[in-house]
Simulated assay, not measured.
Amino acid sequence: MNAVRELEAELALYPHDHFARALLGHALVLRARDAPMHEKRALAARGFAELDAAVAAVPDDPQPRLLRARNAATMPRFLDRSAVAREDFAHLLARVDRGDPAGDPGLERRVCFHAGAFALRERRHEAVTLLERAVRAPGHEPSEEIVQSMLALARLELTPASHADVEEGA
């Protein structure tokens, strides 16, 4: 994978580029998904270590933390990264609640969307609230169509009234 080599070269030149370190970690985890069975665990562990190192180096930078949260949120449960995702999303939500000093106008939308999608995956009812907040937040990513689609799914899956409506209509 060229991305891993390019990111490693970037880090050799700029070792304090913590977002590049997080991207390298993410790329390694993606590589692990398609690697031969005997390489998967080592690649994933290296990727997680790079993601964790990036966040540890700049804990208040939302970009490496959001990338790690998104990565952790999509991992199979047996890799035990759900606690990392919950911690990162809680940190990021607290940050957007305080106001973003970095001036990223789309941060709230991205954080609320991905935190909401993760909450939906975990079957937590706060998913609907987070996704509704993502709809109202400024920004263009994720797209309105994607946010609305995820919100509709969360309402369908987690709202008790929607289950009653489905059962009555059947």
Rank of each mutant, 00 (worst) to 15 (best):
residue 42 A to I: 07
residue 70 R to D: 10
residue 84 V to M: 05
residue 42 A to P: 08
residue 101 P to I: 04
residue 55 V to H: 00
residue 66 L to W: 00
residue 38 H to I: 09
residue 50 E to I: 02
residue 38 H to T: 11
residue 42 A to H: 10
residue 102 A to S: 11
residue 81 R to A: 15
residue 61 D to P: 00
residue 30 L to G: 09
residue 43 L to S: 06
residue 82 S to C: 15
residue 56 A to V: 15
residue 91 H to K: 12
residue 27 A to D: 05
residue 101 P to S: 01
residue 66 L to K: 00
residue 102 A to W: 09
residue 27 A to E: 02
residue 74 T to C: 12
residue 82 S to F: 14
residue 41 R to W: 14
residue 67 L to W: 01
residue 90 A to L: 05
residue 87 E to W: 04
residue 73 A to I: 07
residue 61 D to E: 06
residue 68 R to Y: 08
residue 57 A to G: 04
residue 61 D to S: 10
residue 55 V to Q: 00
residue 41 R to I: 11
residue 57 A to C: 08
residue 29 V to G: 09
residue 82 S to W: 10
residue 55 V to A: 02
residue 40 K to N: 13
residue 91 H to D: 09
residue 82 S to R: 13
residue 90 A to Q: 06
residue 84 V to Q: 12
residue 29 V to E: 12
residue 45 A to I: 08
residue 79 L to M: 07
residue 35 A to R: 02
residue 29 V to D: 03
residue 77 R to F: 15
residue 80 D to Y: 14
residue 50 E to K: 07
residue 93 L to A: 03
residue 62 P to G: 00
residue 39 E to N: 07
residue 90 A to T: 12
residue 42 A to G: 10
residue 91 H to A: 13
residue 31 R to S: 12
residue 31 R to M: 10
residue 57 A to P: 04
residue 49 A to C: 02
residue 71 N to Y: 12
residue 77 R to V: 11
residue 44 A to L: 13
residue 60 D to C: 04
residue 53 A to T: 15
residue 81 R to E: 14
residue 35 A to C: 05
residue 103 G to R: 12
residue 81 R to H: 15
residue 34 D to K: 13
